[in-house]
Simulated scan of single mutants.
Amino acid sequence: MTHRSRLFAVLIDVPGEDRDAATRFWAAALGADAAVEAHEPQFTSLAGGIVKAALQQIEGEARYHLDFETDDLDAEVARLRALGAEPVSRYLDCHVLRAPGGHLLCVLPVHGDRDEFEATARVWG
């Protein structure tokens, strides 16, 4: 069975006490408009850059992670695990994995514009 996925966004994870300064820095560095997501206030969208990016408030140390969106969560998680990713946690429909080398990535249902996903997602299987 086939499924589709694509890189959705680069997330800049920052501790809460650094959020305002990090937002100002990354918005200016990327030439992006910053806006707190009304339905997910831990996220600040950084719109207008070349790469979709967002800032996420976290507990712990600053880091980066990638979000992948897919039309089949189970198939995409299985594909990435077969490539060597290890499960870390799950939050609602978001599967957090750790890639070889230690980097985090999240696999989530299609979260962006559906037409854009249809036009740009890679077909697997």
Rank of each mutant, 00 (worst) to 15 (best):
A121Q: 11
A28Q: 11
L92K: 11
G84T: 05
A47G: 09
R114Q: 14
T120C: 14
L55F: 08
G60A: 08
A121L: 11
V110T: 06
E86K: 12
A82H: 09
Q57V: 15
L104K: 02
S89N: 14
T23G: 05
R19F: 05
E76F: 11
T44V: 15
E76K: 13
L30A: 06
V10E: 05
D13M: 10
L97D: 00
T120G: 07
A22G: 07
A28S: 14
V77I: 08
R81P: 02
D33A: 12
R90E: 14
A28F: 02
A54P: 00
G101I: 09
L108H: 03
A121E: 10
E116A: 14
D115T: 11
G102R: 11
A78K: 01
Q57F: 03
G49D: 02
V51A: 12
H65I: 05
E17Y: 08
H39W: 09
V10N: 13
A38D: 13
C106I: 02
G112R: 01
R81K: 15
A47H: 09
A75W: 01
R114P: 10
P100D: 09
L108G: 01
T70Q: 07
A28P: 01
R19I: 02
C94S: 11
A28V: 04
P41W: 06
H39G: 08
A34Q: 09
E59Q: 10
I58T: 05
R63E: 10
T2A: 10
A75N: 04
A21C: 09
A27S: 12
R19L: 14
L92S: 14
V110N: 09
T44G: 04
